[in-house]
């Protein structure tokens, strides 16, 4: 009687989960291996920065402005109870720079950019366009993935500061309408409580969020299977996975920056 070979170490689900985690880390390692090696596709990086940055601008502007405006409007009654409405600019700027700006930007980009990267690369994978690049002696990972990951990392950072700024403008509209505070007074008061650690943690967060969006979108796209269904799945998983990771990273980075602040 022939010995029956056990096809999985634990079970299919557990084995595939471990393999997925291993593949994801291998994908990240490949990025760091490729990013510093020539050839450098600067033109492609600039094109992707345009795709990620400029095309996300209207949505970020609207969301940032509304976030600042509504957050100020909702905070005002609570502060009025203590006669502390003069703290509004500081409160809003700290909230926007430390948390809301990077987080709101990252979530919007995960939805808009992450899904688009997942769908575009997924479509290229299932229609053999990525293979076509490879057999033409062009490194598809370098050309398609590395340029997109650099672009999302840089642009989410830039957009998150832009989002915080637009959010402050939204907050100013509310503050000015109620307290007739001048523009310069508002921003002076707002920025007086922002310190280096706030800016540093905000930049770190944005870079990490942007990198996550890029790497997850590219990973899901490059691993798309099963035709058009696989493309939809890649786009969907790119959004869900990157949003989940962004929340986890937010908690970890906030914790670390609070420790730094304490010391």
């Amino acid at each position: 009687m022939t010995k029956k070979i056990r096809p999985y170490i634990f079970s299919r689900g557990i084995d595939e989960t471990f393999k997925g985690v291993y593949d994801a880390f291998a994908f990240i390692a490949l990025f760091f291996k490729q990013v510093f090696k020539p050839p450098f596709h600067f033109r492609q990086v600039i094109d992707q920065c345009y795709e990620v940055g400029i095309k996300s601008l209207p949505l970020i502007t609207l969301t940032g402005f509304v976030t600042g405006l509504v957050f100020t409007k909702q905070s005002r009654p609570s502060l009025e109870v203590f006669g502390a409405t003069s703290w509004l600019p500081s409160l809003i700027s700290i909230a926007l720079v430390r948390a809301l700006g990077p987080l709101v930007t990252a979530l919007i980009c995960a939805g808009k950019v992450g899904s688009s990267i997942g769908a575009e690369l997924g479509s290229m994978k299932v229609t053999e366009q990525i293979d076509a690049m490879e057999v033409s002696a062009i490194n598809p990972f370098k050309y398609l993935a590395v340029s997109r990951i650099i672009a999302t990392t840089l642009m989410v950072c830039v957009l998150s500061f832009y989002c915080s700024f637009v959010g402050l403008l939204g907050a100013f509209v509310n503050v000015h309408a109620n307290d007739t505070t001048s523009f310069s007074n508002f921003f002076q008061s707002g920025f007086s409580d922002i310190n280096f650690i706030d800016i540093f943690s905000s930049v770190t967060k944005s870079l990490v969020f942007g990198f996550t969006i890029g790497i997850v979108g590219c990973y899901k796209g490059f691993n798309a299977t099963q035709g058009t269904r696989g493309v939809g799945k890649a786009a969907n998983q790119a959004v869900v996975t990157s949003m989940f990771l962004i929340f986890v990273e937010e908690i970890v980075i906030v914790q670390i920056s609070n420790w730094i602040r304490f010391f």
């Binding site: 290229m124 229609t127 076509a132 033409s136 002696a137 062009i138």
Partner: peptide
């Protein structure tokens, strides 16, 4: 390729130029 695998975001000229200019 069986599916032709043309780069669908590029026109015919760009499709043909791409392998040449990249290499």
């Amino acid at each position: 390729f069986q599916s032709s695998a043309l780069y669908d975001s590029m026109d015919v000229r760009q499709n043909l130029e791409f392998p040449l200019t990249m290499n």
